[in-house]
Design a binder for these strands. Structure first.
Lengths: 182, 182
DNA sequence: GTCTATACGACGATAGAC
DNA sequence: GTCTATCGTCGTATAGAC
């Protein structure tokens, strides 16, 4: 038995603490020392285990958002289903997305945000679109979803925040549908 | 004649330097010492004149984007005209918008971004819309414009960046038009 | 009043002892 | 694997020179 490490590996403790604090307070609002305190660990350990604050940020801020259900659903209601899926994706998604967006200067975070945007917003629709402008129409769909998230979460548009989810899903879904099946 | 201050007031020099550096490198990427060096001034003077880095940021990052031309144009082509106006708004607009967006944690910058969003994107259209859901439709238009900027400038979507301005204006304009005159 | 010099506490990060 | 000590840089405050 080891007298100095009775709990789970401190690497996991750091990871858990970082994930919580980054999603709650963002990158700039979270210090390495905050994370260390939350994980009950020495600040130097955080850097030693993850080779830097940004690396730790990138390792914890991953969006597991797989709209797999949409790949085999009917093409008809796909627009609305897609919006509904995104709006229902929960608090964690919101925090990670916001943190990535606001930290997206710096090369590493910027390309991570791009990855998330493409894999979560563009790719699922791109696969199901047809026509020689399918690429562009998928990018437009993604920009509309991104714009909705931006308005709701970054700007905090009160009109959109006050609207019913059903209403938003119907209206934004209809716009997407026009790009999906023109 | 004065031997120590041959140029304009150092307050203006600081302001000019800050505007350039903030729009080029963003808030986090610009240090008070950078600004001071650019303005050929003591770092402490920057704080003394502007009472803090964030205050200086807010004072310099103002978006003068008055789509006045749209207020009396025909309602018909308003969607496309609006998009075209935004896409043509130049490098400065892009820098200020990006800097505000990425620094929008913190109370002050967040509400500034909201102001810019509402006054530049929502309000000009809101005035010209009719119907009891005009508020919501104006907010949706603004979210689409915001989404386009987000995709182009924050994410750097290559498909949208490669598209011709005319093509984007026509396609996004048509979507907006459906919200303007349903 | 305008500006400089200097210093403070907090930050991210590193080196080396245990 | 973990802690101690320390580094250079950040934003900021203040005392005092011109």
């Amino acid at each position: 038995m080891n007298t100095t490490t009775p709990r789970a590996s401190s690497r996991d403790a750091i990871r858990t603490a970082a994930e919580r604090l980054f999603t709650e307070r963002g990158y700039a609002g979270t210090t390495v020392r905050d994370i260390a305190a939350e994980a009950a660990v020495d600040p130097a350990l955080v850097i030693r285990h993850f080779a830097g604050k940004e690396q730790l940020f990138l390792e914890t801020m991953q969006l597991a958002l797989e709209p797999a259900a949409l790949l085999d659903g009917p093409l008809d209601g796909l627009g609305e289903a897609f919006i509904r899926f995104m709006l229902d994706s929960g608090e964690q998604t919101r925090g990670v997305y916001l943190a990535l967006l606001r930290a997206s200067d710096t090369e590493g975070v910027g390309s991570r945000l791009k990855d998330v945007h493409v894999s979560a917003f563009v790719a699922p629709l791109r696969e199901r679109l047809e026509g020689d402008d399918a690429e562009l129409r998928a990018a437009m769909c993604a920009s509309i979803v991104g714009g909705l998230f931006y308005s709701l979460w970054v700007v905090g548009d009160e009109t959109l925040l006050a609207a019913l989810t059903d209403d938003l899903a119907r209206r934004y879904g209809a716009m997407l549908q026009q790009l999906i099946t023109p």
